[in-house]
Design a protein around this nucleic acid. Sequence first.
DNA 1: GACACGTGGCA
DNA 2: TTGCCAAGTGT
Length: 297
Amino acid sequence: MSDSPLPLASALHAPVLDWYAGNARTLPWREPDAGPWAVMVSEFMLQQTPVNRVLPAYATWLRRWPKPVDLAAEAPGEAVRAWDRLGYPRRALRLHAAAQAIVAEHGGKVPDSHEALLALPGVGTYTAAAIASFAFGQRHAVVDTNVRRVFARALTGTAQPTISPTAADQRLAVSALPEDEATAARWAVATMELGALVCTARTPRCADCPIRARCAWVLAGSPPYDGPPRRGQTYEGTDRQVRGRLLAVLRAAHGPVAKPSLDACWPDDVQRERALDGLVADGLVEPLDNHRFRLPA
DNA sequence: GACACGTGGCA
DNA sequence: TTGCCAAGTGT
């Protein structure tokens, strides 16, 4: 397997790091006093949810549960309730389970090794690398959708990254990593920030880009995306929408909810029952006697 | 590897 | 208005 010639990633280090120094957003999980737990909470919330919607929930969450042990002592349903409308509520359940694992297996402290992080519920390759890098300053390839897009353009020369993450993305990110640990950690957050603020998906602000003169995609004349069509994620009428409605009722009710209240959420009996069964199977809803339901205790 | 999984803002 | 997109993970 031979690598095709690519622009020298090391030439991008200084301009991207300098740009980050002058343009990084002030975000609470990046404050010096944030700590690993705060970073971890932010990473869970930011999985597929935009920063602006995470900010208020993040503040409320950390005020209520400032340490893993605080969350671990709660009922999982309280985590689901506090998750509010961030979406993908299974993340709340997994964060709760991760907190319990941290208490049970790591003395209540967020572990600092990629391997131990990866073993936690809800922590995949990206999140493990992100926590290890952002919270502990380690040298890891932190490959999220922003980084994949930045590298696709700057190094590969394509308008968009592949639809799903690939081993090639990971290899490219590893090869682009600065050698020095502290520099690598700044590079990780800087490339993500560049993707979030400048090298955006729809309308990249190339005029503001610190590496536009070296960007393979720009140098190629910014050719349009020519890959396979991206699957639009329909939502209206899906089980996900029904699950969302059911869970919204249960979040709003601080106690058991009778079945008729849930039935009112959705007219299709078959789909509604399937969605409710799914929520129960996922541990997001707890069935009680007399056809009542609640968030898990 | 494809698919399921919430929610809301924006061009 | 509607489709695209948002710091992914688990199966």
